[in-house]
Nucleic acid binder design. Structure first.
Lengths: 193, 193
DNA sequence: CGTCTATTTGAATGTACTCAAAAGCGGTGG
DNA sequence: CCACCGCTTTTGAGTACATTCAAATAGACG
């Protein structure tokens, strides 16, 4: 039942035979999240890593005083979780909310661990995913310390055109680490229509 | 000849037999970098990943107008490189300089690739390294968008006491994304001795 | 000892935030 | 289908955070 997306994603990096494929997908569990609902809530144990089948999600941190910082957005064909808490079996520091009705495949820690021993090639697959994620985050950190808010905004729009189109300015601001008011003010300045 | 450090690092995560160990270390090449010299220079092809035997290094980006942003610091027992350019065989965007006389083991892309096929367990090892690096960078990005410069500074000192002790304020500032003048000004404010 | 770079200090400026209020927009119920 | 409600976005004034530039001081190194 439509495991195409995740299997194609995997096969960009490694080759699985039919048995491995069917075993891999047998370990996935479907979950639907409707708009504005949380897939993971800050404080709860983060048991799963999620592959997004459809929809879009936002991973964010909420500080004690209520300020939200968006760590990442996820769309179809992306893996998403609170990685630190997932791999260390800690209560989540991050929440994951659906920006629209979404559907994911989830894989819990034990199953993933078992998969690594049963299909060692998956180590390579996830090694490459982690490697890409690392590079992405390092570039983001570099952007954060190098550019002004305005520059960061235009770089974000360029890099993630699909995502930046569908999210609200409030969420964009919380990803850039600025207030929605300030984002609004420099968008106006640049669109003097 | 003192491969202890790197072999111990590996054995925190996977088990290699003696043959694998000796093969692995046979692929490493030693390189010495004296203080202020560059191990990698922005623009040059980034062929290697480096394991730091001794000393300390700084990975940084220099923009056209000469402003430097420090991406990371590395001390003994850490792996370091311009990961994005290493895995994509691109000219380096980052430079790596020695903060003091240092010594590294280097491993080039081809050798690492060969090692992955010959000792598949290494996929797990690097998967874990990449996973940790990803988590670290994600937390850093979160810090950058959530906290003020002053808060980021004290969090940095707490998280990396060894590193923060040995580096200059100029380098600290370039890691935090602020000017040395501003770092100096709030350090004074908090130490009214 | 002298040179070079890092650090400090201060004034002026620019970037980004806070708070408050108004306007816009989407969803929901009557 | 329209009216209302809640949330997002806009706008502006005042403030705080952080930079720039310049000059003085302190430290490191040959």
């Amino acid at each position: 039942m439509s495991f195409e997306l995740v299997l194609n994603n995997i096969q960009k990096h490694i080759l699985l035979d039919d048995l491995e494929k069917s075993y891999f997908v047998s370990q996935l569990q479907e979950e639907a999240v409707s708009k504005k609902r949380l897939l993971l809530e800050q404080g709860n144990l983060c048991r799963n890593i999620y592959f997004i089948r459809s929809g879009s999600l936002r991973v964010f941190y909420r500080s004690k005083d209520g300020k939200e910082s968006t760590v990442m957005f996820g769309i179809a064909d992306w893996w998403i979780t609170d990685m630190y808490c997932f791999v260390n079996k800690r209560p989540a520091m991050l929440s994951i909310e659906a920006l629209e009705d979404s559907s994911v495949w989830k894989l819990d820690y034990c199953r993933l661990k078992k998969l690594y021993t049963e299909i060692p090639k998956l180590e390579k697959y996830f090694r490459i995913l982690m490697q890409n994620a690392y590079c992405r985050e390092q570039l983001r950190a570099l952007d954060n310390i190098t550019f002004t808010a305005e520059e960061r905004y235009s770089r974000f729009v360029e890099k993630y055109p699909l995502i930046s189109q569908k999210i609200t300015q409030k969420d964009t601001a919380s990803y850039l680490g600025i207030t929605p008011e300030f984002l609004s003010s420099f968008k106006r300045k640049n669109q003097p229509s």
